[in-house]
């Protein structure tokens, strides 16, 4: 496993929406390689018959009743928004369509 390139880091940074400098791209490529080498030992253990643990405490079916509870006061939310207008959050123009 491993051997992470500068381009790999650039792709990951793009997925993670972080603008990285050329210096950071190179630094992280090296550091991630070291980290992945250090953690590589986990591939030695845990065969296919071992189930994964996603939750420390094995409970199921935790549900809420379908009851309306008070929402936040709009001003208290928009006051701390980077920008707001007409009761809405103002965000820069969106390029991608979803």
């Amino acid at each position: 496993m491993s051997a992470i390139s500068r381009d790999d880091v650039a792709h990951l940074a793009s997925l993670a929406r972080i603008e990285l400098t050329e210096q950071e791209l190179n630094d992280y490529a090296g550091q991630l390689d070291v980290i992945l080498t250090a953690v590589a030992s986990i591939s030695e253990v845990a065969a296919d018959d071992i189930p994964p643990t996603t939750h420390a405490v094995p409970v199921v079916n935790v549900f809420r009743e379908d009851v309306v509870t008070p929402s936040l006061d709009r001003d208290s939310v928009l006051d701390h928004a980077p920008a707001a207008e007409d009761g809405r959050f103002r965000v820069p123009r969106i390029l991608d369509e979803e």
Partner: peptide, 17 residues
């Protein structure tokens, strides 16, 4: 969450953390 789902409410009045 417990926020209401009514259609057509004033913007951002049916929101919580």
């Amino acid at each position: 969450c417990g926020c209401a789902t009514e259609f057509g409410a004033e913007p951002n009045t049916q929101v919580c953390p």
